[in-house]
């Protein structure tokens, strides 16, 4: 406990953190974004290829308590995997919560396509191959 010794040190919301610090038992967080076990999801490849936080997780900066804003169903994942140029952004803007999550206009889609080339993102056929996610 470094920060919360000083910031909001008495807040009741942070009682689990203080209890964990006292007893040495970890906090058991409930997963909000949970995929089924047969889908092997790797987070780092998405972040490193220009898929921003808000694209999948929504406006986390405006959530008092985190909730799942996307369906996380396979059809939802495929929307992007079939057309990655619509959802990819510059790597520098990955943490920008205000970035509009979908490229709609023609220029934006062109720009998205150039990002695919720049970031060496795999082609649609590879992205929609079953073994990319299921093994």
């Amino acid at each position: 406990m470094n920060c919360h010794k000083q910031i909001w040190a008495d807040s009741p919301y942070l009682e689990p953190v203080r209890a964990s610090f006292r007893t040495g038992k970890p906090i058991e967080w409930i997963r909000v974004h949970d995929l089924p076990d047969y889908a092997y999801f790797n987070h780092s490849i998405h972040v490193n290829k220009g898929v921003g936080c808000s694209t999948c997780h929504g406006r986390v900066d405006e959530m008092p308590i985190a909730y799942q804003s996307s369906s996380l169903q396979m059809e939802w994942c495929l929307e992007c995997h079939r057309n990655p140029e619509r959802f990819v952004r510059e790597k520098g803007k990955v943490f920008d919560m205000n970035w509009r999550p979908e490229n709609k206009s023609a220029t934006e889609i062109e720009y998205g396509r150039s990002l695919l080339v720049k970031y060496r993102i795999q082609g649609k056929q590879v992205l929609t191959s079953c073994s990319t996610c299921h093994r």
């Binding site: 038992k25 970890p26 906090i27 058991e28 967080w29």
Partner: peptide
């Protein structure tokens, strides 16, 4: 839909 899973970090 599926039972809730937990994330338990290391101390």
């Amino acid at each position: 839909f599926q039972p809730a899973e937990k994330i338990v970090p290391y101390i």
